[in-house]
């Protein structure tokens, strides 16, 4: 990224607080984007928009967070001067046609994911797909973390999973390498955040919800899930209930 042009187009400045992104219409550079747009044919720009939409959909399919650097390098290429227009249009299309929203989950490193804009349907926690079993494991871990006060130590998480007969060292017939699934795949997909706890020896880790988890499910849904399994009313857990009701 070091050789980025010193273009004034929004979305290109090296600033790292990220609020310049995707906000063309409010920046004074709007007219410049307009001028750049006029140099490009509509067909070329449309082509780029659809390439970007496809790129984002493919990445999203595997739940790989998308780096702006990759968008620039792999899709936008020589169209950097109209980048903001392309990404805005792609965002609009994703919303109108696919019901998906492009969300920046890391404003420092400019990392994006797609989340569904559709109202969550009854009994449809997290997006349904052929990885349902893995997501089942995930929801169990997310509930455990939430019930523990939004943070749990690795030892506790694995002890809990062991009781469910999910062993980190063994190959699970559905999940494969469980350790890898939890500590790498779920983390990469931004469902989980695992951070080392300072000054622990041997090192201990803290498990928390990642930004995708908060987007694709809610504390309310997770509490409802726990309540159903335990055959109790959600209000049984007073503090969790209050917290869940207070978060959208």
């Amino acid at each position: 990224m070091s050789q980025r042009k010193r273009s004034k187009v929004s979305g290109f400045s090296q600033g790292d607080d990220g609020d310049e992104d995707f906000n063309v219409s409010q920046t004074p550079t709007h007219s410049q984007v307009q001028r750049n747009l006029e140099r490009r044919s509509q067909d070329q720009v449309n082509q780029k928009v659809s390439e970007l939409v496809q790129f984002l959909l493919v990445k999203d399919q595997k739940k790989i967070p998308i780096k702006r650097a990759d968008i620039l390098k792999k899709v936008i290429r020589e169209y950097r001067d109209v980048y903001s227009e392309i990404i805005n249009r792609a965002g609009r299309t994703l919303q109108e046609v696919f019901g998906l929203q492009l969300v920046e989950i890391d404003t420092r490193h400019h990392i994006y994911i797609l989340t569904s804009n559709l109202p969550r349907a009854e009994g449809e926690n997290l997006r349904r797909d052929n990885q349902t079993a893995k997501l089942g494991l995930l929801i169990i871990i997310l509930s455990f973390i939430f019930m523990r006060g939004n943070s749990a130590k690795d030892g506790a998480v694995w002890e809990f999973l062991r009781r469910l007969r999910v062993q980190p060292g063994e190959r699970h017939e559905v999940f494969g390498d469980v350790k890898k699934l939890v500590t790498e795949e779920f983390v990469r997909q931004k469902y989980l955040e695992i951070t080392p706890i300072p000054l622990t020896d041997p090192p201990e880790f803290k498990y928390q919800w990642g930004p995708r988890a908060a987007k694709e499910t809610s504390k309310k849904d997770v509490l409802r899930f726990v309540a159903k399994i335990q055959g109790k009313d959600p209000t049984f857990w007073t503090s969790q209930y209050t917290e869940a009701e207070a978060t959208p």
Binding site: L57, Q61, V97, G99, S116, N117, R127, D129
Partner: peptide, 17 residues
């Protein structure tokens, strides 16, 4: 016009491949 029903159909189809 597309409705949310269309969008949901598309989302689920995409996630299944």
């Amino acid at each position: 016009q597309m409705t949310d029903a269309h969008r949901r159909f598309l989302q689920v189809l995409m996630s299944h491949g």
